[in-house]
């Protein structure tokens, strides 16, 4: 098999989803942030994932060109490489910031408008549900793998 342990894969998934949940929490916390005139408003952060790079550190010892049907598919290198997911970085969404007419605010500009963040609460909540679903699935795989490991060990126990 490839060089990566199942627990490493699940760990990378949990780390990545954790970063995403952190970004979502930050976005939701700043949904009502306002900015003084002349400063950059808060923009929603979006975490981008990437599959672990193909061919990086891959010990491609088992590459067989035995002419079977699967040789044309170029996923063998991907499979022999490290599996898992990693955070490629985060981008700021380019939605326009919300402006609100509130001349009484100390942050209002000359026209009486206050610049807020560009966070969409609905988008963030949908992202949150998606992310926690993925997190739960990874945890389920982790629990299942450790249960099966335990049962396999127990079945070989010499009584």
């Amino acid at each position: 098999m490839g060089g990566t342990d199942l627990f490493d894969i699940v760990g990378s998934a949990l780390t990545a989803q954790d970063a995403r949940l952190g970004a979502i929490a930050s976005n939701l916390a700043n949904v009502d942030s306002v900015t003084p005139p002349g400063q950059q408003p808060y923009r929603a952060q979006e975490v981008i994932f990437a599959a672990s790079p193909v061919g990086d550190g891959a010990d491609d010892g088992g590459d067989n060109n035995d002419g079977d049907a699967t040789d044309g598919v170029d996923v063998t290198a991907a499979v022999n490489a490290d599996l898992g997911v990693q955070v490629a970085g985060s981008v700021e969404t380019n939605a326009p910031p919300v402006t609100k007419y509130d001349p009484g605010s100390p942050y209002a500009d000359a026209q009486g408008n206050v610049t807020g963040s560009n966070v969409s609460q609905v988008d963030q909540m949908v992202d949150l549900i998606d992310s926690s679903n993925s997190y739960a699935a990874s945890v389920a795989v982790l629990q299942q793998a450790s249960r099966i490991d335990q049962q396999m060990l127990a079945s070989f126990q010499v009584s």
Partner: peptide, 16 residues
């Protein structure tokens, strides 16, 4: 090996 691949699929469920 298949368990690792399936875990990898789940890990990359949100990877573009």
């Amino acid at each position: 090996a298949r368990a690792a691949l399936l875990a990898n699929n789940i890990a990359n469920a949100d990877t573009p």
